[in-house]
């Protein structure tokens, strides 16, 4: 059976695909870099809660990349009631349980034109989270939000798993 297959044709197809892909990527306005770079995140500075009032009330035109925030610091912000938590998991995980008061923007179907995204104030402070320390959807959603102009995005380190481990408020 394998002797009847023209493997040179398959190899030629792969080569043509590579050439076409490279050529199209070079010309396309949506092309990507050939070498992908890793997104490095920094930890948020302590005492950020003191700056929340000014951050939430004035427009900050210096867009900063998302940074990680420890669970305890996030809880401090939670109690200040001046931030909003965004759950990046899918709606089924969110419906099962989520951080009290958070909203759901599933990362896998994120679109900048989603009504819930358009309704958010880009100058407000948000903390994005997902399941656990292995989960990456919160990081990706945070980057997506940052790229469309959300100025202050934090990513909850350890996700909802750490939040629950600390007995912090959940619902339902």
């Amino acid at each position: 059976m394998l002797k009847q297959i023209n493997f040179r044709f398959i190899f030629l197809l792969i080569v043509i695909s590579i050439l076409l892909g490279v050529f199209y990527n070079f010309l396309s306005p949506f092309g990507v870099k050939f070498i992908r770079e890793n997104i490095e995140l920094q930890y948020a500075e302590p005492n950020i809660d003191n700056d929340l009032d000014s951050l939430n009330s004035t427009a900050n035109y210096n867009i900063t990349p998302p940074s990680l925030i420890m669970t305890e610091a996030a809880y401090t912000l939670y109690n200040s009631k001046k931030i909003l938590f965004i759950d990046a998991r899918d709606q089924w995980d969110f419906d099962e349980s989520h951080i009290k008061g958070s909203i759901n923007i599933p990362e896998y179907k994120f679109d900048m034109n989603m009504p819930i995204v358009k309704a958010l104030n880009k100058n407000f402070t948000f903390i994005v989270y997902c399941g656990d320390v292995e989960c990456d959807v919160s990081k990706r959603l945070a980057v997506n939000l940052s790229e469309i102009g959300f100025n202050k995005i934090y990513i909850l380190e350890g996700g909802v798993e750490n939040w629950i481990a600390n007995n912090y408020p959940m619902e339902p």
Binding site: L13, S17, L20, G21, V32, F34, I35, R36, E37, D136
Partner: peptide
């Protein structure tokens, strides 16, 4: 990248040519 199977630097290369292979 979400699958965490390939080295980060190689991901875009696959993203560039694999769809063309599928299409052709």
């Amino acid at each position: 990248e979400n699958y965490r199977l390939l080295p980060i630097f190689s991901i875009n290369i696959f993203a560039i040519f694999l769809p063309w292979l599928e299409l052709i």
